[in-house]
């Protein structure tokens, strides 16, 4: 029996889609059979991030409306065995799907796949309700900004109201240098407010932008720090104990030298 995990945030632009693509690819790399469902109907992106845009013939709305079978709409990833995408419709809106239909769809996919990752749209309206309807677990993505944390708090409340207990927190786009200077919220600040378990921290990484534009998830890039963070998160999702990534950036020779002599490096 597969597990349905919804990836949500409330606020837009914090990295739900990137996270879905990376965790999904990470799980596929671990040999799991994974399907990613884009529920952002009308503003679909996951297909672009996965680099599968040009393969879409049928979509989520076609499936729930019975225009096609699920298998016809599933797009096989071009690189990884066992990774599939169910894209959202672009020319429709969120009301084209109901929570009941999502539950039915998730239940059907459960038999075929180990993991069903649902990429949730921003907001708390119909699209959000659809996305969480069939889910067993939730990952809440936030960035170290007051507004994103506020929205994440709202989302956690809504998840709990919908019987989705113990959501996991993923802090995205953290910048260690700014945290050190005291210009950015620390992980502890965020956990203090949200009071849920942390599943991982992903550093701000230029490579994410590059990989997103190329349609190749960063999780496959062994040199990328963000990729490493996503690999660890994937393993934690699978139940492994993985220590948190050391995000200390390489300070360079001069800074190390100064530190050696006991000089202040800030």
């Amino acid at each position: 029996m597969g597990e349905v995990i919804v990836i949500t945030s409330g606020k837009g632009g914090v990295g739900k889609t990137t996270t879905t693509a990376n965790i999904g690819t990470g799980l596929a790399l671990q040999g799991k059979k994974v399907v990613l469902i884009d529920t952002d109907i009308g503003l679909r992106n996951l297909d672009v991030v996965m680099g599968l845009e040009n393969r879409i013939v049928y979509d989520l709305v076609d499936v729930v409306e019975g225009t096609c079978r699920i298998k016809q709409a599933l797009i096989k990833d071009k690189r990884y065995e066992g990774l599939f995408l169910l894209p959202a419709a672009q020319t429709r809106d969120k009301s084209a799907v109901s929570p009941e239909q999502m539950i039915k769809l998730c239940d059907e996919l459960r038999n075929e796949f180990d993991f069903i990752l649902v990429d949730c749209p921003a907001g708390i309206e119909q699209g959000f309700k659809n996305a969480i309807a069939g889910a067993d677990r939730a990952v809440v993505v936030t960035t170290p900004e007051v507004s994103a944390v506020r929205d994440a708090d709202r989302i956690i409340g809504l998840l709990e109201a919908n019987e989705l207990r113990n959501p996991k927190l993923l802090v995205n786009r953290i910048r260690v240098d700014m945290v050190k200077r005291g210009d950015m919220m620390t992980i502890d600040d965020i956990i203090d407010i949200l009071a849920i378990d942390l599943i991982g921290v992903v550093p701000d990484d230029e490579k994410i932008v590059v990989s997103t534009n190329k349609g190749e998830p960063a999780v496959t890039d062994s040199k990328s720090l963000a990729g490493q963070a996503y690999r660890n998160i994937t393993r934690r999702l699978l139940g492994e104990e993985v220590p948190m990534l050391d995000l200390e950036t390489d300070d360079g020779f001069l800074v190390k030298l100064k530190r050696l002599f006991g000089l202040r490096t800030t």
């Binding site: 393969r55 709409a73 096989k76």
Partner: peptide, 15 residues
């Protein structure tokens, strides 16, 4: 292969 016959081929997803 399961569910493979979707987009890759020219003819598989019949409209």
């Amino acid at each position: 292969p399961e569910a493979q016959n979707n987009i890759s081929g020219q003819t598989s997803p019949r409209i």
